[in-house]
Design a protein around this nucleic acid. Structure first.
Lengths: 215, 215
DNA sequence: ACTTGATATCACCAGTCGGTGACATGCGCA
DNA sequence: TGCGCATGTCACCGACTGGTGATATCAAGT
């Protein structure tokens, strides 16, 4: 709110730089992501972001070209997000089969989504609305995930005679849907999604599903 | 728009009844469901519904007690919806195993969702927002689905040693998520969700998943 | 015929939204 | 020093939202 919020900025040598475009732009971007993560896409608007950043909305138009550009900026950050939350190494040496890979990915993804509200809200956005903004966001996210998979896959290939893309899409969809449902209501299909034990049951179910189709 | 829209109403003996509460209320309710099915929950508002029904929004407050009551009214219709779209008999005699039941349910559910925009928008709503309205809606839908399952299940029980609720939640989540993603973007996880062939691949994947865990 | 109550319409309110033009302020450079 | 440009602020616009009170219109009962 007040002027006291400033991290480091690019102040030359003399003290505080109040007029600092990059710092302000950063504050706007942070406010936007925070707003999206906490309130969801429905509340994500020019006025709300400006309010959260403690500056005039005009600056959003100047620095990001409006909401579109701001959302794109969020998308750019999103790629790094995936890499941060999804460890690429550490255990990949133990992946012996394609089933191992899928299982590991799904469980990692489940946990990553479970404690990343921003990611959850973005996925919910993708599911609920169709507009150019969220389309671009969705594309970036998809690309980042695919890159992660490529990096971790190595030379593992799915078994012959199995429609791996279809199966994987179903499994990924299951993970996403369950996490979203848990986020929003804490229940799904008669199942409680509150305690870690409930999620452990789901993780086990996921393992069984994977093992059932990737023997 | 004009007055020409009237189906039958409860006209006593003389001709047309222009002032007919039940007819007007029905028009409002139909307009609301149509708006929800076509435009999604984001556009579902008092003004828009009144516009669609061709009447004053005041009537929505009078007859339904505002948007809350109107959404509840949609929920009431929703139960019958499930029964209409999900045939309960016809083939249930061939269900020999629990896996048969799950498979049959999932495929039925997949098809039902695929050509019911209202259901899709409601599920998207459940996933994207948390408010009392959609909570009640979600509850009704869940109850209707559970009843359907109870009716069709007969005396089939899941195999011992298998966490059927968790597995089923995952499978249902997969179906819902894929249908929603297909509705909104036509792609998911690198998979096209446009042609019937794509969906046939998914249906086959679903069968494999079910058969993998319910042998 | 006259009243009563239900049905429907209208006008208006305060609030929020996205968007824009005009203006103030201050830094850096000539 | 003063000029110019980047930065920040303010005021306003039209459009839309949910919500409410007052009023018109008509049907039915006494």
């Amino acid at each position: 709110m007040t002027i006291e919020n400033q991290t480091d900025a690019t102040q030359s040598e003399t003290g505080i730089r109040v007029r600092d475009r990059s710092e302000t732009a950063g504050r706007i971007l942070r406010a936007a992501t925070a707003l999206l993560a906490e309130e969801g896409f429905a509340k994500l608007g020019i006025n709300a972001v400006a309010r959260g950043a403690g500056c005039d909305k005009q600056l959003i138009y100047r620095y990001f070209g409006g909401m579109d550009g701001l959302v794109d900026a969020i998308g750019i950050e999103l790629a790094g997000w995936v890499e941060d939350r999804m460890p690429a190494d550490g255990g990949s040496a133990f992946l012996l089969t394609y089933g191992d890979l899928v299982e590991r990915f799904l469980l990692l993804y489940l946990d990553a989504l479970r404690d990343d509200p921003l990611m959850r809200k973005i996925i919910a956005w993708e599911i609920a609305e169709t507009n150019p903004q969220v389309r671009r966001l969705s594309e970036v996210r998809g690309k980042a995930m695919a890159q992660w998979l490529d990096r971790v896959r190595g030379n593992l290939a799915p078994p012959k005679g199995i429609d791996a893309p279809a199966l994987n899409a179903l499994l990924i969809g299951a993970v996403q849907h369950l996490v979203l449902a848990g986020d929003v209501s804490g229940r799904f299909a008669g199942l409680a999604l509150a305690s870690d034990q409930d999620w452990e049951r789901l993780a086990n179910g996921l393992r069984r599903l994977v093992r059932g189709v990737y023997p």
